[in-house]
Simulated scan of single mutants.
Amino acid sequence: MDIFSRLTFFSYVDYSSLGLLFWLWFVIGWRIEHPSAKHASVSVLMAGYRREWMRQMITRDPRIFDATILGNLRQGTAFFASASMISIGGVLALFGNTEQLIGIADDLTLNSEPNIVWELKLMVTLFFVTNAFLKFVWSNRLFGYCAVLMSAVPNDVDDPRTMPRAMQAAEINVTAARGFNRGLRSVYFGLASAAWLAGPIALIVASLITCLVLWRREFASQSRDVLLSGDAHDA
């Protein structure tokens, strides 16, 4: 069976729901990283605090506190990378044992479809989980780079290399956090993609709910209000 014959197993609603999933994943990610100046996202606000962290580190003696925080951040990325790898193994295991999955899916959708349909649907979930794993691994490595740069910041405040190196560490820290957040979004949409097993309508609903949850946490959450109140006090 060629690829075109396999594609006929899916309806236009299936393709539309899949397109919506990827479109929402791209749009919400772009909006979070490129918000308007008047309505910044939590991620952008936290990037400002990360830069301020590196500026405050310059005069902190000793810098054990900063090293501890960075170590905790690396542990978080390592945990999610390990969890993503386990998820990848779980999805791959389903490819070799689709009989039970088909039985559950048939009960949910009340129809019978060939194995290739379920395998292709699982490949979408596998894509998101794999992308999440790669983002978490790269984020972990960037936090390691940040640790090296922080160690290279001179203790002398008057040293001309102090502020530039601290800002280098800040930008690497921000980039690492961006990768971590992208990995989390892939996890969210990977969970949403699993709804396709119950049909295209379920996938549409799950995609919209996932996008709404991400939007609320970034633009309408209590934590965002707290971060903004901190900026107001600073002003």
Rank of each mutant, 00 (worst) to 15 (best):
S41C: 04
L45H: 04
L45Y: 06
L45E: 09
A47F: 07
R50L: 02
M54I: 04
Q56H: 13
M57A: 13
M57H: 06
I58A: 05
T59I: 04
T59Y: 05
R60I: 12
D61V: 15
D61P: 03
R63N: 00
F65Y: 09
I69Y: 10
I69K: 09
L70G: 03
Q75T: 13
A81N: 01
A81T: 09
S87G: 13
G90D: 08
A93H: 12
A93M: 12
L94P: 03
G96P: 00
N97Q: 11
N97C: 12
N97E: 13
T98D: 09
E99G: 06
L101I: 04
A105P: 02
D106N: 15
D106H: 15
D107Y: 13
L110I: 08
L110G: 01
P114W: 07
N115F: 09
N115S: 08
I116Q: 12
E119N: 03
K121Y: 06
K121I: 03
V124S: 08
T125R: 06
T125K: 06
L126I: 00
F128W: 07
T130Q: 14
A132F: 00
A132E: 01
L134P: 04
K135I: 05
F136E: 02
F136G: 01
W138R: 13
W138Q: 15
S139V: 02
L142N: 11
L142A: 14
F143W: 03
M150F: 03
S151L: 14
S151N: 15
D156Y: 00
V157K: 10
V157D: 11
P160A: 00
P160C: 00
A166E: 08
M167R: 05
M167E: 13
